[in-house]
Design a protein around this nucleic acid. Sequence first.
DNA 1: GAGTATAGATACACTCGGTATAGTAAGAGT
DNA 2: ACTCTTACTATACCGAGTGTATCTATACTC
Lengths: 195, 195
Amino acid sequence: MENDAPVGRRERKKTATRTAILEAATSLFLERGFDAVTVREIADKADVTPKTVFAHFPRKEALVFSTENEQQDRLVAAVRDRTPQTTVSEALKAHYLAEITLLQTEPMSRIMALMEDTPSLIEYAERMWLRHEDALIAVLTEEFGLAEPSAEIRFYARFALQIPLMARQDDPESAMEVGFELLDQGWARYGSAHR
Amino acid sequence: MENDAPVGRRERKKTATRTAILEAATSLFLERGFDAVTVREIADKADVTPKTVFAHFPRKEALVFSTENEQQDRLVAAVRDRTPQTTVSEALKAHYLAEITLLQTEPMSRIMALMEDTPSLIEYAERMWLRHEDALIAVLTEEFGLAEPSAEIRFYARFALQIPLMARQDDPESAMEVGFELLDQGWARYGSAHR
DNA sequence: GAGTATAGATACACTCGGTATAGTAAGAGT
DNA sequence: ACTCTTACTATACCGAGTGTATCTATACTC
């Protein structure tokens, strides 16, 4: 979390205001919901100018998802650090399931609850998630010992990132199962019966 | 296009203002670009109130994509009306390629050019395109003689709709080829060599 | 055909996210 | 002590989109 070098006072102050903004925002969001809180209120509570809020976070939605980078790192690590006898799909499936259980614990679960009834947040979260595509393509390319990503890898990454988005319902495990089965074995078996 | 019953004067006037807004918008967009045109300017040129613009179109971006419904109809028809010996994937691939060539002709090509350098438009177009998912799921369910959509169908639809989004580059045909090959035959063949 | 209801449009004020600009003040490097 | 940079402020602003009350031409009804 805060394992960066404790550099100069200036940077310390900067991260201080950043966390102040973040804390003000999350407390207000959890209290009244995302849409009902204005950026100006957040700024007031954090005792900064609205402009400062946007200096630290590109959009209002970004105040909810401040741990995006770590998420990507975990995803990449899940692929790269899998055991040799594990396929990429198996590793991804396991990782997705682990992430889901992670999201069900405090304090993430409250943010997830906030998300459920805020369309703009869902949308933003999905867009952010899909931004990991390039990173996933990069690991896969590396793992497969290629110099350039192949078209197959690109499609695989695109498809694979869709799976957790569809498994956010009641039974994530079996949904995930189906998704990866289709991704690994293909549709032909289902479709061939009906041309 | 305008094959609806020529009903009362009221509805005729309504569609008249709608087309006036649409024409004003497209001409201004093509002339100066999407972002450089304000809704007020469009409203002025169409001689209506800004409020009226939003009464006809939910968002500014919707002014560019006014033929969304027809697009969905064509997609559904491509699946439903395929010849019996054609698989769904084959039908979709052919349809996508046809749509792409359609988009390369006037006046669509100019709208596409407009899109290229307007991120918000690309985003909106993709979101709108993916909204066809439910419709695609519905046809597939029907075509496969099921009462309820299966999880496999849901994933297939999700994946299949991603393919044209990835084939917007230089060589759509071969990209499409790869996408559907992966979707139909699965990743196992590629991945197995590298676990 | 007069009376009434209503849908489409208007006028206008407003909210809110986000930006632009100019300036201040504190910290960092020399 | 000397700048130079940088986080932040103050303030005004922009543009998309909404809320509300109102007007009016059209449609419906008796």
